[in-house]
Each structure stands twice: as C-alpha cells, then as structure tokens.
Write a protein that binds this DNA or RNA. Structure first.
Lengths: 222, 222
DNA sequence: TCACATATGTCACTTAGTGACATTTAATAT
DNA sequence: ATATTAAATGTCACTAAGTGACATATGTGA
C-alpha cells in the first residue's frame, strides 16, 4: 500500500498530458503537432513526455482509457438483478458525472469524429478498445461465474466491445460532423440494444445470484 | 484501366517488404530491427521503405491484409444457397492454397503468437482487422441486400470481425506457444461456430436469391 | 522512337525517441 | 523537525525514424 499515491499521481500526470495532446491534435492535426509542442503546452520538459509515452500518437490513449475505465466501473457495480437498460438509465448521462469527466468525454467525441482522416488516432483508439475488451472479460466472467480464460467469455467480450466501439464512433461522427443532437435516453437505448444484439452470452439480463436466499452470506472482505 | 498493372506491382513490392519485416521482427523483435535492416534484407534503399510505409511497425500490415483479403475473396464468392460451414469446408485449408500463401499464413500465425509481448504488432494487427471489417460490411450488405451505410450491417460486420480476430489469436497462440496441433476441420468448425454466435444478422445460412425462379436473370456484367 | 508517368536511389535534413547523469520532490522513519 | 530514500523530472548529447528535393532508372502508350 506504499506506492499507491505515487501511481495515482503518475496516472494523473499522464491524463493531463493526454488532454493537451488531444487538444493540439484537434486544433492542428497530428502531423503538425510535435512532441515539443505537447510538452510545452503541458509545461513539462520534452524528455518527460517521452518518459510517459512511446509515441506522440499514444499520448491520447489515457484520455480514451479514462472514459472506458469509468464505463467499466459502472459495469462492475452492476447489481445482479438489474437489466442493462436499467443500469444505463440509472448511471449514464452528462448529469451523472463530474464536470472534468464530461469535458474529457467531449474531447473523446471530437477525437472519434476525426478517425476517418487521422489513422494515427484510430490506432490509439483501437488499442484503447483492446484494453477495454480485457476489462470486459473480467466483468463478464464475474457476472456469469465463469473462468476468465474461457473462450466463450473472451468471444463475448470481443463482440460486446465491438458494439460499444461502433456506437461510440457512429454517435460521435453524427454529432460532430452532422450536428445531430441525440438525447441521453436515445443514446442509452441505442447502446443497450447494440450490446444486447452483440452479446454471445446472456449477461445483459438479471443473472442468478451466487448466494441463494436462505443461504448464509459470507462477510464482505478483500 | 491504364495504371492497374502498376498498382498491382506496387502491392507486390509492399508485400515482399512486409515478409522481410515480419521475418526480422520474429527473429530479433521489433525494437531490435531498424528500418535500415528491413530495407537491406529486401535489397532496396532505405528511402524506398519509407516511401511504402509510414512506420516500421506498419510494414507488417500488407502481410495481414493479404491473408484477410484472400479470406474476403472466399466470402465474396459465397453462393447464396450454402451455409457458412459448407463454404469453409469447401474453401478453407492448407491444401487449397498456393505454397506462397501458405507460407504467408504461417508467418501471420507466428506474428499473432507474439502479440502479448509486442504491442507494436498488436497495433498493426488491429488496423488490419479494421480494414477487414470494412470489407465485411460490403460482403454482408451484398449478401443481405441491405445498404452499406446501414448501422445494423456495420454492427454485424464489427462483431463478426471480432469473432474472427479472437479465433485467429487463440488458435495461433495455442499452436505456437503450447504446440497444440489442431486439424483443419476443427479450426473451420471453431471459426464457423464463433462467427455464427457473433453475427447479429442472419447471413450465415442460405439467403433468398435476389432473382426468384422464373424471373429473367440479367446478363452478368461489371 | 519519343514522350510521359511512376518507382527507385542518393543525400542532406528534421523530428521522434533514448541513455546517462544531475536535480528536485515527496513519502516515511527517526 | 530532519535525515533517508525512492521516484519523478530536467538537461543534454546521442541514435533512429521519417521527409524533401532532385537525379536516375524502368516500363508504357502513341
């Protein structure tokens, strides 16, 4: 438990650098933004930037990761007796997040709208989706009481992540390029439907609890 | 129809460079292979390498793309009245391809087995899967007589591509790391099952022909 | 054979990214 | 409080990745 504050601080630094990188990429494009530019904007030495990222393109990954991590957290808290539509309705929406997180998501949406023109961003985005997929494996395995190495769990995680990715890309492009205003309820509905269709295992509906009524529940501990 | 031979020649050059890049990446790892090394191995000037690829990692993409292109070609020839299992049984297998294509696929399998250790390769692989996904969109739209821009078609293409990717990764890792010998029939079965589970639209089974019996079929032309 | 387009080679150059070592920062023990 | 220590950052020289500009092939069509 010693170096934990350290690693959180490190993540914050990366995230902060990531925000500056995203902003500059959006303003001038990836090609016209140098590592020096990003470092200067964030007020750190160039060397520090390269300590945190292997390439300038990967500098946007923490921003993507942060979004998908918050989403994963919601899924992790998902009570076993609620359907996915209820979960999304109860936990997803601009009014349910911190202002900073909302600003981050807006940045993400703008970045996703640029994927067709910026292959470098797509590469970072796909890598982030891969991370998300691995988180999904754990979440689905947990919810369905299956082993994490199970092929069917991995398959389901991959198809569900693909659905989330397509909805994110589609909604972002529609919003930024075509100015389509979609309500939170509509997006949630859209997302839930897509995940339902994509899922190869029945984890979207209430699942049987691990402990049946009448059984003794062990005290919660790490 | 003028520059067609040219562009084919260009693709061959890229593919040839790609094979050398893949071999070197496998032998020494990505980090210990320089652009100069790849160019020297292929017998071209370093400048030529950078004319064909934006980064040394992306130099393996044509190899991945070539595999997925041959797969896409099989799907494009897919008669409307056969199920996916029959198609795979009839067209997939080492005995059904040219020796060079087989060698390429072996290289691909070895590369996929390295994904856990080589994030740079994963990035190239995911980008190739994205190309494959776009081809799948056309194939599925064609087979189901739906527009290519249809959201449900895109969703289906994404989930199916995810399934193919997971099977490829799993089979490759099992074969290379754990020496598991799987028969062609087993892999085909595995692949067909995964695609079936993943598909969000019913394109795996025979579909109704565009022209019903008794109707006049227009002469085939581009 | 000429004209033209495209691929490649050569070389100087810029930008991306690393190694080595000094300095700062912050958590913990005393 | 202060010493101790580990991790983050800064500085600077360096290697490797990638580009621009221009010359030279190489094939293609009239």
């Amino acid at each position: 438990m010693k170096g934990m504050n350290r690693s959180i601080a490190r993540e914050n630094t990366r995230l902060e650098l990531s925000r500056h990188a995203a902003r500059l990429f959006l303003e001038r494009g990836v090609a016209d933004t140098s590592g020096d530019d990003i470092a200067a904007a964030a007020g750190v030495a160039t060397r520090t930037l390269w300590r945190h990222f292997r390439s300038k393109e990967s500098a946007v990954e923490p921003l993507f990761a942060h979004s998908s991590l918050r989403f994963a957290d919601i899924l992790r808290r998902w009570p076993r007796d609620v359907a996915i539509e209820e979960l999304f309705h109860a936990s997803l929406g601009p009014d349910k997040m911190a202002p900073q997180d909302l600003a981050d998501d807006i940045l993400v949406v703008k970045l996703l709208a640029r994927l067709p023109e910026e292959p470098a961003l797509r590469s970072a985005w796909l890598m982030s989706c891969h991370i998300g997929e691995e988180q999904l494996i754990e979440i689905i395995a947990e919810r369905l009481d299956r082993p994490k190495g199970d092929f069917d769990v991995r398959l389901c995680a991959a198809t569900v992540m693909a659905a989330i990715r397509i909805v994110d890309e589609t909604v972002s492009l529609a919003a930024v390029k075509y100015g389509l205003k979609t309500t939170t309820a509509e997006v949630n509905e859209h997302l839930a439907q897509a995940v339902r269709k994509a899922a190869t295992l029945p984890f979207c509906d209430p699942v049987t609890p691990r402990i049946w009524p009448g059984e003794q529940r062990a005290p919660a501990s790490a």
